[in-house]
Structure formats: C-alpha cells, structure tokens
Design a protein around this nucleic acid. Sequence first.
DNA 1: CCCAGTTTGTTTAACTTTCAAGGAACCGTC
DNA 2: GACGGTTCCTTGAAAGTTAAACAAACTGGG
Lengths: 163, 163
Amino acid sequence: MNDEPRWLTAEEQLVWRSYIEAATLLEDHLDRQLQRDAGMPHVYYGLLVKLAESPRRRLRMTELAKYAKITRSRLSHAVARLEKNGWVRREDCPSDKRGQFAILTDEGYEVLHRTAPGHVNAVRQAVFDRLTPEQQKSLGEIMRIVAEGLQPSEAGADLPWLR
Amino acid sequence: MNDEPRWLTAEEQLVWRSYIEAATLLEDHLDRQLQRDAGMPHVYYGLLVKLAESPRRRLRMTELAKYAKITRSRLSHAVARLEKNGWVRREDCPSDKRGQFAILTDEGYEVLHRTAPGHVNAVRQAVFDRLTPEQQKSLGEIMRIVAEGLQPSEAGADLPWLR
DNA sequence: CCCAGTTTGTTTAACTTTCAAGGAACCGTC
DNA sequence: GACGGTTCCTTGAAAGTTAAACAAACTGGG
C-alpha cells in the first residue's frame, strides 16, 4: 500500500489535456450539428441509430440503455421526448409485463434517413479526414481498451480487490 | 460537388463506436467520482484547476471559458455555483469595467488539494495504466489534431469553403 | 405456495446546460 | 462627442441529466 499520489508526468498531462479538450469540443460540435439539423442532441440520435440497427427496429428499454451506455432513468426521459416527437413509440413486452419495447417509427426512420449524411459528414470532417489510417486504427484500439476497462461487465469486475 | 454521402466503412464505424462508448463511459465515471469525492462535476473541477494554475489564482471570465472550452454563459452559471460553495470569488477588473476576475479562494484550493490525488488516481486507473507508452503518445497526437480542427481559432477557419 | 430479493422501468426534485435576449462598457470613426 | 458595432458577462426559461425512491412484476429457495 502506498498512499502517495502518483501524479501525472508532464507528458501525461499534455495527453490528458488534449483528450479533455478534444472530447469537449467534439461533443459540443456534434450536439450543435444535430440539434440544428435533426432537432435532437447527439445522445438521442444515437438511440435512434441503435433502434434502426435492431431487428424489427425495437429494443427493450434496458437493452437500449446498455448499448447506449446510459442509465435507464436517462433513457426513460429521452424516450418520452422522442415519443412526443413521434420518432419512437412504445409497446408492452408480452412475455414480461414489466417490460417495454422502444420502437423506431417510420417517421423516426425518416428523420434518420434525412439527417444521417450530414452527421456522417460532420464526423468525417472533425475526425477521420484529419487522421492517417494508422491513427484511426490506433484510436480504435485505445478507445476499445478504455471502454472495456469501464464496463460494469464481467463477473468480479466490480470487485477489483479480489483479483 | 458530390452530394453522395461518404458513409463510414465498417472499420471506421467500429472506431467511432469505440470512441463514443469510451468517451461516454469515461465522462460518466469521472463525473461520478468527483461528484462523490469533491461535490462537483468534472467540468467544475476543471475550472478550479485552471484557476489554480493561473498567476494569482485568477482569470478573466472569458479567458477561463476559452481555456475550459465552454461558453461564457455556462461559465457564468458555474462560477455562480462555485461562488456559493465558497470555492471561487469574483473581483471587478479595474482596467475594464465590464470585466470580472474569477479567483480561487483558499477554501477552493483546499478542496483541490484534498481531492486531486483521488482524481488523478481515477484517471490513471481508467486510462494511463491501461495503455502502453506508445498508445499514450498516439492518443495525445490524435486528440491534439482533433481539438485543433474544432477550435474556432484561426482566421478563415470558419470559412472552410474559401480554402 | 410464499416470501425475500431482484429486475424493470418510471417518477420527482435538484441540478446543470443551452438558447436567446439583454445591459453595460469599450472602440473606432465620423 | 456621439453613433454603430463589438465585447463582456449575466439572466431567465426551457431542455436535459442525475440521484433517490418507488410500484409492479419476476424469480427462486424453502
């Protein structure tokens, strides 16, 4: 046991600062882009995408929350809003009476269809067009590692002191 | 001119998904960690850090907003809250009567001093401890590029069609 | 069965962020 | 010296997020 904090080195600090800045600017940028062109924030857009990719364009609330990495509470509010927009509707789960499906409506699909090109373009412009293929690959690997480390996934993962 | 959307390739999609997931999970993780241990969200913590790093622990509001990559409006609310906590105080700028300094109080410095080790630790655990030195370097380069591309910085940068 | 414990999804209130608007001070020019 | 335009920062309302608490439905061991 060593309580002495291991501060970040100068290089690490620079890396971390770059990360925070880029992540902040990027999320802001995409939020504004989508708010303007699609009338919803980035997270909500992501929800529609997940639904569109799913069989029968539907997912159980908990599933959707898991895929989107958000809490069920947040999802509950979000779907309520999307429902009000007519882009998502709900349906009761027959096998589990607690359950709800969130279902992408045709109208929701339309919005996605209409706004996806602009969004992809924004992502390209901000990220992929600026990186070499090696950097893209590298970014993927790095973020995959970070994401895995933060998943409340595997058994025992939440009991790190046992490992 | 080509209106045909350039969709992301399968590989690019995977990279992008990893990025979104990691960024979401990471921000959530740090927000919770700081909310729990320091009683404020990550962005607010970042503001205190910027102030602590500044000469005389003070910055003009606009400067602080620029460094933290947030809008002045957002900063205005944030500082109001931090002020209420006694961690920041304001002072009028003598040379420009519109101006305000945000100043880190001793109490604010104390909070930072007390909570920084835990935060650094969280960052290490989530990011640096999982990456090789090469990956860390790579991440820094990549994020620096992305951040630069999104800065509302250079002249003409907001008129890309002229370049 | 039954009951304790879990899972599902929602709700409320507190908080944070965004958007649009605005007041006040500055700056340059006529 | 006053006018138009800009910059600095704040404000209030609307939208989004979080945390905690909750009801309802499921689950499994006794």
